[in-house]
Write a protein that binds this DNA or RNA. Structure first.
Length: 329
DNA sequence: TCCACTATCACTTTTGAAGCGC
DNA sequence: AGCGCTTCAAAAGTGATAGTGG
């Protein structure tokens, strides 16, 4: 079966999710202490997020017996911070592991409430989603699919320096999940590289092309990665990784000053905003002779700049224990 | 009046074509 | 001709901000 960008999860023949009697998808999650807690995930779940800080976020899907099996029954996410040198957790037999890169940065944003700017033409995500895979069938053929799903049934408003849930969210736009351009590839190829979706864009205008997701502003979303395995009998099996660390609220202009500061300090393209120099319009620069330019004092610049506020008020990011237990609604 | 949204700005990074030498 | 390196301009990215309109 051919899977293009307009991939429909509903057409999958075999897949990992468990369905309850009502046909609603149930994702059974196991916390790190081994207890399990099933939760409903109908694509619009609302994970109230515990935040934490680690280098890499690891999500594991445990298969039933072998890598050939399509019955991914249990899902576990852990955050044992395996870095490149300490990745023993990635060696577990019979499991698929997704390691989110820049997880530390993702959790810094999550701590203060991630906002993603969107516009008509499409704005890139920052941080972007990049990860590595372990435990997939080395000779199996896989597609890697990027998708953005609702993370709450509410819309939000920024009040008193925090996001408050208000009325019900608007009906979602129809977005086609985005297949990684290198798909399909065999498992061994996927496992020897970083898989990046840095060029995915977010828009608020419906009807954009592949790789641009149309979202509603002031609504909460998260990224979901799906692995689609092409089975020998022409069937497909799917395993999904909703990545809670990527939960964000779509905005047309940033609301939280802390988010802006963090973006400026971590995004290379924003370097121009790190230097505490007053930004002048072209005409202004032309009008100013060199003497006058010197009069643009550093003190004024500092008062007007983001950098100034940063120096005064450096946010602390408390280290918290990771909790990847159930996706709460 | 409020606030979400848009267009535009000044800035940086990325990209790719052109030029050059071996 | 082909390859590798450097240079440089254009394209594409960023948050800030003023203006618009519902």
């Amino acid at each position: 079966m051919e899977t293009k960008n307009a991939f429909h999860i509903g057409r999958v023949v075999k897949q990992s999710n468990i369905f309850d009697a009502q046909g609603e998808k149930v994702q059974k999650s196991i916390s790190s202490n081994g207890s399990s807690s099933p939760s409903i995930s109908n694509g619009s779940s609302s994970p109230e997020l515990e935040t934490q800080s680690s280098d890499i976020e690891v999500c594991q899907i445990f298969t039933q017996s072998s890598s050939r099996s399509s019955g991914f029954s249990d899902m576990q996410c852990s955050t044992d911070s395996p870095d490149e040198e300490n990745n023993s957790i990635l060696q577990i037999n019979g499991s698929i592991t997704l390691s989110l890169m820049e997880a530390k940065l993702w959790y810094k944003f999550l701590e203060i409430g991630t906002e993603m700017a969107i516009n008509r033409t499409g704005r890139r995500m920052f941080p972007y989603v990049e990860f590595s895979l372990r435990g997939v069938d080395p000779v199996g053929l896989y597609d890697v699919i990027f998708d953005i799903i609702p993370a709450s049934s509410k819309s939000f408003k920024f009040m008193n320096n925090k996001w408050i849930p208000i009325g019900r969210k608007e009906k979602e736009f129809k977005n086609s999940p985005f297949k990684h351009p290198d798909s399909p590839q065999i498992g061994s190829d996927w496992m020897t590289r970083k898989i990046s979706f840095e060029k995915v864009k977010l828009s608020n205008r419906p009807g954009t092309q592949a790789g641009i997701f149309t979202l509603h502003t002031l609504q909460k979303y998260l990224v979901r990665i799906s692995l689609v395995k092409h089975e020998e009998d022409d069937e497909l099996s799917v395993v999904e990784f909703p990545i809670r660390a990527t939960t964000f609220i779509a905005v047309t202009a940033y609301n939280n000053r802390e988010v802006t500061k963090l973006k400026i300090n971590s995004n290379p393209y924003s370097k121009g905003f790190r230097i505490p120099v007053r930004r002048l319009k072209h005409e202004e620069i032309q009008q100013l002779d060199t003497k006058k330019q010197r009069l643009v004092s550093m003190e004024d610049s500092m008062k007007n700049s983001v950098h100034y506020h940063l120096k005064r008020d450096v946010p602390a990011f408390p280290q918290r224990q990771l909790d990847f237990s159930a996706q709460k609604d």
